[in-house]
């Protein structure tokens, strides 16, 4: 695994170096894309000046809101639907085709219904993230061994105690996968919606800079989004792995 990590680093470095070379020697004009080193410098400048602090806070707050809503609703609905067999069978086709439906197509409606504030963007992030959490909860609950549940009944554990000692530990890896997906999807949903139409946030700022041909702001912000999503994804991946490893022991 360590060797793979080194190769990965080398590949990314080689790609960046190639891009830098192409930009420096004029194969890619500065109007299309500034050199990576310039983008990094500009991003540093923007972060230090704090001119985008409001947009960053707004986007991250909306993502956090969408994730929070997704996780709570997803788990609650998951547990309810898991109990109620007929409902689950009816909803199963919806879950299976849900991610094939272009959720952004609903965004115009949300704008009409809720205005241009944060609500439509949070809602899009929630719509993308919640179903992932819900289906992960369902598969987690499916994997709780019957024997353990029967044991709990034999020991006359209450519902809370059963959840704490048996259901949650058994379902945990699936729940973490659900949270991971919810975070990625909520991030994609919020930033995408901001980009399409909104008044603030990182997605909006990128679109605004693009419309003004302002590469000095657009590229650094794109880099910031890429970095944020990579860091979030890697942190959650590590958490997932550590949970799975602990269970393997």
């Amino acid at each position: 695994m360590r060797r793979a990590g080194l190769y990965r680093l080398a590949i990314v470095a080689a790609m960046l170096a190639t891009l830098e070379g192409l930009c420096r020697f004029g194969a890619i004009s500065a109007f299309t894309m500034p050199a990576p080193s310039v983008v990094v410098r500009d991003l540093w400048g923007i972060l230090r000046a704090g001119s985008m602090a409001g947009a960053i806070v707004k986007t991250l707050a909306d993502v956090a809101m969408a994730v929070g809503l997704s996780v709570v609703t997803g788990v609650v609905l998951g547990v309810t639907i898991h109990r109620w067999r007929g409902l689950r069978e009816t909803l199963e086709p919806l879950f299976a085709t849900y991610y094939a439906i272009p959720v952004y197509a609903f965004y115009p409606l949300f704008i009409v219904l809720f205005g241009l504030g944060s609500t439509p963007q949070v809602l899009i992030g929630f719509m993308l993230g919640m179903i992932a959490m819900l289906t992960s909860t369902l598969s987690g609950l499916d994997r709780v061994p019957r024997v353990l549940l029967r044991t709990a009944r034999a020991y006359q554990l209450g519902p809370l105690e059963t959840a704490r000692r048996i259901t949650l530990p058994c379902a945990a890896p699936f729940l973490v996968t659900g949270v991971k997906l919810a975070v990625s999807y909520a991030f994609i949903g919020v930033v995408g919606a901001e980009f399409i139409m909104s008044r603030d946030g990182l997605g909006y700022e990128i679109n605004f800079a693009f419309n003004n041909f302002d590469n000095g702001i657009m590229y650094p912000l794109i880099l910031l989004i890429l970095l944020l999503s990579a860091v979030l994804n890697m942190a959650l991946h590590a958490w997932e792995r550590s949970l799975l490893a602990r269970r393997g022991r």
């Binding site: 991030f187 994609i188 980009f195 997605g203 999503s229 979030l232 890697m234």
Partner: peptide
């Protein structure tokens, strides 16, 4: 992992 990270990126920001 590289592809998995790329999957999680909001690709809409690459549109410009």
């Amino acid at each position: 992992p590289m592809l998995a990270s790329a999957y999680a990126v909001p690709k809409i920001v690459l549109y410009p």
